[in-house]
């Protein structure tokens, strides 16, 4: 049951975001995009940590906020100094996201296999 609580949070967030049609000036759109990528990366990292039984709420929350803010700030800095740090952030977070998803996939498969092995063991016994 409790597994739905974070998803409920996501749904509530999406609903509120669409009800109040949050948007920022187009000039800052790329910063927000990088921030969203960072947030997604943090979420996936959190999921992986759960699967690895290494989850820490403070690490997740701090990571989420710090990563999003730093990502946006880096993109802004890049704009200021004329270096596309925005792209670097996109690439970095993209790689991390794929990495996290891969880890999650591996962990899930491992978990499923373990479960299956346990089941087979029980049946054999």
């Amino acid at each position: 049951m409790t597994i739905w609580l974070p998803l409920l949070g996501l749904v509530v967030g999406l609903l509120l975001g669409s009800i109040f049609t949050l948007s920022i000036p187009i000039a800052y759109a790329s910063y927000l995009a990088v921030a969203v990528l960072a947030g997604l990366d943090s979420l996936l990292g959190g999921w992986r940590a759960i699967l690895e039984r290494d989850f820490d709420g403070s690490v997740l929350v701090s990571g989420f906020f710090v990563n999003t803010i730093i990502a946006a700030a880096l993109a802004a800095l890049g704009d200021m100094i004329g270096v596309d740090l925005y792209l670097a952030a996109v690439v970095a977070f993209g790689i991390r996201i794929f990495h996290n998803i891969g880890s999650i996939r591996h962990l899930l498969i491992k978990k499923m296999r373990a479960k299956k092995a346990q089941k087979d063991k029980r049946l054999n016994a």
Binding site: G9, L10, V12, L15, L16, G17, L22, G39, F65
Partner: peptide, 10 residues
């Protein structure tokens, strides 16, 4: 985090 992510995404 999910809530904030939803807001960000929207």
């Amino acid at each position: 985090v999910f809530f904030c992510f939803g807001l960000l995404l929207m």
